[in-house]
């Protein structure tokens, strides 16, 4: 590949990736060691679990957002803006509502989690198939549909939660109460396995990502099996979002933040650069951000708020600048 900027020995993507890699490594080290007191084996295993969860979330959200934007050929929509994590909450609520709270308590958490992920992937499959496989739709229409779906899913969940008996509601709330501070680590290994499986599937079709970014007509012209590839990617995106939402709860604008920042830093849209950069940025933001908040400012509540705030700003900026083309 020719250098876009002549004169420098390393290309801009290489420098950006190396810098982000260093930052991410520093964040991880700081997260594991800063302010550690007492037995190292305890500290490392305790923090290690949270670290793994944060990295999984960063990875899942970054990859799902970048690929979702590639497939839908836009820079503004993300799975969460399309009301996707609201769908996860709806699935959880429906399980309690229709099957009873004992399903959440008694059922093996792994089976439960897998069922929920499968349900969600199924829903997403139907939804996306309808939205993205037919004729091309206006981006504004899609944003509107996404917002309407989000509200619909949330309202439906809220309605069912109101009707639930208080005990069942308590159980449900407990299941839904995940955040960056309170990572649901019971599902950690299952999530890890799922993310690894998704990565394997995506790896095998990774060669088509850049071509898909050229848009549907050009991708088909170049011989991509469009419906099959797109549905595979969207299904994998659904699984990734399910995993991340299960671990830390819904976060709306984080994916948009890391995907947009990655592209802005790199200056190119090639996936072999954008995907790792977005993941590393995600790790820096989550692991580094959490460390700074916990150790430097020693208050424990605000990472999601800060991330949402910054991501929201990026969202508004992108819309105003007209990247919606």
């Amino acid at each position: 590949m020719p250098e876009a900027s002549s004169g420098s020995r390393f290309s801009r993507p290489a420098i950006v990736l190396a810098g982000l890699g260093l930052l991410a490594a520093a964040s991880v080290v700081a997260f594991m060691t800063l302010g550690a007191r007492g037995s190292w084996s305890f500290v490392l295993s305790f923090r290690g679990q949270r670290l793994l969860a944060l990295i999984l979330v960063a990875y899942a959200i970054a990859v799902s957002t970048v690929l979702f934007q590639t497939v839908t050929n836009n820079r503004i929509l993300t799975p969460s803006i399309m009301g996707f994590d609201a769908l996860y909450v709806l699935v959880q609520t429906s399980v309690v509502f229709f099957l009873g709270a004992h399903m959440l308590v008694l059922a093996d958490p792994y089976t439960r989690f897998l069922t929920e992920v499968a349900l969600m992937a199924g829903f997403a499959w139907v939804l996306f198939r309808w939205l993205f496989l037919g004729e091309e739709r206006s981006l504004y229409l899609l944003i509107l549909i996404g917002i309407v779906f989000g509200i619909f899913f949330r309202s439906l969940s809220a309605f069912m939660q109101r009707v639930l008996d208080p005990n069942a509601f308590q159980v449900l709330q407990d299941a839904l109460f995940a955040s960056f501070q309170n990572v649901d680590t019971t599902l950690l290994w299952m999530s890890f396995a799922l993310v690894a499986a998704v990565t394997l599937v995506l790896w095998r079709i990774a060669h088509s990502f850049d071509v898909l970014a050229l848009g549907r007509p050009q991708a088909i012209s170049l011989g991509v099996d469009y419906p099959k590839t797109v549905m595979t990617i969207l299904t994998m995106v659904a699984v990734l979002v399910a995993v991340s939402t299960a671990l830390v709860g819904p976060i709306t604008f984080f994916g948009l933040l890391v995907a947009s920042l990655a592209r802005a830093l790199l200056g190119t849209g090639l996936h072999r650069h954008v995907l790792p950069a977005a993941v590393l940025l995600g790790i820096v933001a989550l692991v580094g951000g959490q460390t700074v908040l916990e150790r430097v400012f020693s208050f424990n509540t605000a990472l999601s708020i800060i991330v949402e705030f910054l991501g929201g700003l990026v969202f508004i900026f992108l819309i105003v600048r007209g990247a919606a083309r």
Partner: peptide, 23 residues
């Protein structure tokens, strides 16, 4: 051909070889 990805001319033209080289 409104594309969202930012590509160089060389990148774009290389995609023409995708049916042969699969990336």
């Amino acid at each position: 051909n409104h594309m969202t990805a930012r590509l160089t001319v060389h990148d774009l033209v290389t995609f023409g070889r995708y049916p042969y080289s699969r990336g």
